[in-house]
Design a protein around this nucleic acid. Structure first.
Lengths: 137, 137
DNA sequence: AATTTTACTTGCAATTTGCAAGTACAAATA
DNA sequence: TATTTGTACTTGCAAATTGCAAGTAAAATT
């Protein structure tokens, strides 16, 4: 989001200072599902983020070591983004958000199917998904 | 946050539409710790929320059934806010945020002590804390 | 060589934030 | 009873952020 404005020492506040806006977690969501995304991939998300906002969020997330850039293996015109370990560690938060939302909204079927797996063995799911994300690093 | 602007059917997006800003989760945090807060209590938080922002967030959270108002037992001049069940159910998200932050920031000692309890038995902690919050309803 | 793709940047209007001050009602105090 | 204080907001306004549309530059394709 913004650079180095720490509002307090509260862990919640510190976290929100980094990804507590309407867009950052959606970028992180996309990376958790797709593992690697280009700039254009993010723009395809249904929420329709504006290009300037996307650029500013990607920069802030990179500065905060949540994501990192890497070369696209097939093209110099493309940039690949992926999660760092710090970003991958947001997975439990992302899962709990999905579980909460499932309880209070109607959500897409494919997401429900995923959450069914989660509820069977949450720790196991997180471990496996983390490992999968790590394998791209 | 804002009224009824649903950006997509994604559960993450729907959630952020409600509490995905820099302040809402801090209000919810205060209510999770204190159980019941007055307007003035929220203003005492170290992040120093502006009075107009606080009023607008409280209204939005109430409209979205995350919090509710009740009469103060001792004074008609005061208003008490507390979490609804929907708000209490955000507890697992709040805990995961704290756990993530502990890993990447230095956080206050008392919060560390709480997280020590969490790590001993996460499900048990959430159950007990939820029950405790429910007891105020 | 010309066109298209990709990742941005820029300009600008609209919205939101943040600060300071003000208001209205209740409660405490003189 | 009159006055002051406390509590929960609202209002006004400047500054920052957002969102839309258009533009740019380098790389890839035709």
């Amino acid at each position: 989001m913004n650079k180095t404005k720490k509002r307090s020492d509260c862990p919640v506040s510190c976290s929100l200072d980094i990804w507590g806006d309407r867009w950052s977690l959606l970028i992180i969501r996309d990376l958790m599902f797709a593992k690697e995304c280009t700039y254009g991939d993010f723009l395809k998300a249904p929420e329709r983020i504006a290009t300037n906002i996307l650029a500013s969020r990607l920069q802030a997330l990179e500065e905060n070591k949540i994501i990192e850039k890497l070369e696209h293996p097939e093209s110099k015109a493309k940039v690949l983004y992926r999660l760092t370990k710090k970003g991958i560690d947001l997975l439990p938060i992302m899962i709990e958000i999905n579980l909460w939302a499932e309880k209070y909204f109607s959500i897409p079927e494919d997401r429900k199917a995923m959450l069914k797996q989660v509820k069977k063995d949450k720790a196991g799911f997180i471990k496996a998904a983390t490992k999968e994300l790590q394998s791209f690093r």
